[in-house]
Amino acid sequence: MSGDDILDVRDLKVSFAVRRAGRKYRVQAVDGVSLALAEGEVLGIVGESGCGKTTVGRAIVGLVQANGGSIRFKGVDAMGAGRAGRRAMHLNVRMVFQDPYASLNPRRTIGDSVAEAGDINGIFRDRAERSAMVAETLAAVGLNPSFAARYPYELSGGQRQRAGIARAILPTPSIVIADEPVSALDVSVQAQVLNLMMDLREQLRLSMLFISHDLGVIGQISDRVVVMYMGRIVERGRTRTVLDHPLHPYTRSLIAAIPLPDPSKRILGAIETSEPPSLFKRPSGCAYAARCPLASERCLIDVPELRSTGTDERALACHNV
């Protein structure tokens, strides 16, 4: 990983204590994830629900406690950082949430929600500066500045998500972590919001961690992509390369599942129908072995490590490819 990485996550581990039928379990939601985000880059994280992709994002902004690994922001350890360090993280690494209906407080005006990061960290000199910055930010996400005085219930889903994005860019951060930012929206609105995010990324020179289960969306917006399966990265590389020439059997089945607009092109190859194994009982070998068409005996015993394939930042965790 090069020196100009703005965010460097190494061997991140997050586990949750879960009680089930009176017994305590520790579920390893993220099990040794390493990723690096270069300045101005969009890195996609893709995987099915429950694979830990959201947890990675939440651990980076400090919403869940990591129990292993390191997170470095601009070279500074963010997990052990003191008060000043955490404050820099709070303003510089911001999150856009999936559900625009749940992510805005119904009792606060849009303006109050958008200005929240600034209010918490005391960056506004006076009310005039605050309202000027709120108006400017609302305009930047394509909302009329008069929306500042409105309440969330007066807005449509797309408008709310624009407000959610505005909240994440006032004051301008270095990194935006977008957790499925369009999957709760109508398809027609999805494209608008995606375009907005790409515009903002360029104007504000943001780096972005874009979490999604939708390879189509990831393909449009991200420069590189990591594919996660059961808390681990199984494949990593340039988005175009990974989408055009998937190597890992899991990535292949994800890509095969993308619906094509042309009905004459039938979906070929394996489509995932079975569920992944339970996180309570992680298999001893490769977690994908039970569903994998290429699985061999070694896959049931040995956990495949993520190894570089030598070309183009590509890496893969599979014994048989």
């Binding site: 902004v61 911001r94 949430f97 990061a117 960290n121």
Partner: peptide, 24 residues
């Protein structure tokens, strides 16, 4: 989620109570 959003931006307990919990 809006409470999580607030926490992710560095909100402390007093902020959460005053701005998010009490009003609701």
């Amino acid at each position: 989620t809006y409470v999580e959003a607030s926490r992710s931006m560095g909100a402390g307990t007093i902020w959460l109570i005053g701005r998010h919990i009490l009003p609701n």
